[in-house]
């Protein structure tokens, strides 16, 4: 157990390092951009002196690394800066949007797995049947659908033709259904494919034969031996896909005018509102690192072979 704690701490440290690296990288990219936010929001009639003053006030005339450390020191105090376009605290803006994005992505993630994993197990253990073939083709089609178009189709069918669901904004739980479907279906397809191929792989293992030879029935073999092993990579994927889903939320949220972080990020990018963009990407970076660490720890928990490696690993 102490090995696991040590491992967790090690992973935390590398995680923090990755957060710094990602934010620094992003900061560097931002500096490459021609012009800055002040030029963008300033009226042409504003005097150059006034613009200089503003730059001073925002700290934009300092060298990039100074700006980065300035930003970082504030972040550590929980201050993500002030939005250039609205003047509001970035942390306040994000706080208001964060729960909506987490609600959408969290629910979507859970939905994907509780549907896709059993489906993968069932189809893989009945390989080469018609149902299995249909599922495989269906997933490739779902995969090939751009999420924004899927969103528009769902909007058309359920919102405009059948008029059963609201198509934009947030007005109670019914607003959640269409964005949730849009976000879930394509990822569901990939989770299904992963689960299916993992199960197929495990089914080829000798220990499955042993399990049958022991006298276990099919149900027991599938759930206890096959699923249990197939779940290891699937669990890792569960955590790794959280940041990807949040990335995808930019599109889904903009299609359905969902009041989440993705929409905010999109607006901030169009307005070149640095502090907001930085703030959101920082949050996403943290979420990514946390979910990676959780994935690693959980997979070590599920797979004793990884635990052994950790024990032997004296990095």
């Amino acid at each position: 157990m102490s090995d696991m704690i040590e491992y967790t701490i090690k992973r935390l440290f590398t995680g923090i390092f990755v957060i710094f690296a990602v934010t620094a990288l992003l900061f560097a990219i931002m500096q490459l951009m021609p012009g800055d936010a002040i030029q963008l929001i300033a009226n042409p009639r504003v005097s150059p002196e006034r613009i200089e003053e503003l730059r001073e006030a925002w700290g934009l005339n300092k060298p990039a690394y100074v700006q980065y450390f300035y930003w970082l020191s504030h972040v550590l105090k929980g201050d993500l800066g002030t939005s250039i376009s609205t003047g509001q605290q970035v942390s306040v803006l994000i706080k208001a949007r964060f729960p909506y994005t987490m609600l959408l992505t969290g629910l979507s993630l859970i939905l994907q797995y509780i549907i896709a994993v059993p489906l993968g197990l069932i189809t893989a253990s009945n390989k080469n049947t018609r149902a299995d073939g249909i599922m495989v083709v269906l997933t490739i089609i779902l995969w090939s659908m751009p999420p924004f178009w899927l969103g528009i189709l769902l909007m058309l069918v359920f919102g405009i033709w059948l008029k059963v669901l609201p198509i934009s904004g947030y007005s109670g739980l019914s607003s959640l259904i269409l964005p949730l479907m849009t976000m879930t279906l394509p990822s569901l397809a990939s989770v299904f494919r992963l689960a299916r191929s993992e199960v197929l792989e495990v089914l080829r293992e000798k220990y499955v034969l042993t399990a049958y030879a022991k006298g276990l029935n099919r149900k027991r073999v599938l759930t206890f031996h096959v699923l249990r092993n197939a779940l290891i990579p699937v669990t890792v994927m569960f955590f790794l896909s959280l940041p990807w889903l949040i990335g995808g939320s930019v599109i889904v949220e903009s299609v359905f005018a969902w009041p989440g972080m993705g929409g905010l990020l999109w607006k901030a990018i169009s307005n070149q509102d640095y502090p907001v963009v930085q703030g959101i990407i920082f949050i996403i970076a943290i979420l990514t690192v946390i979910s990676n660490i959780l994935g690693d720890i959980l997979s070590a928990f599920l797979d004793p072979r990884i635990r052994l490696e950790i024990k032997g690993d004296n990095l």
């Binding site: 293992e205 000798k206 220990y207 034969l209 042993t210 399990a211 049958y212 030879a213 022991k214 006298g215 276990l216 029935n217 099919r218 031996h225 249990r228 092993n229 290891i232 599920l302 797979d303 004793p304 072979r305």
Partner: peptide, 27 residues
């Protein structure tokens, strides 16, 4: 029937395989 086979495998006939690492479930 397959169901009856469940009660024969392990109980009446046991089987061991070539590579004892592959044949045991790692988890």
């Amino acid at each position: 029937s397959e169901n009856e086979m469940y009660s024969i495998r392990g109980k009446q006939i046991g089987m061991i395989f070539q590579n004892p690492l592959d044949s045991l479930n790692p988890v």
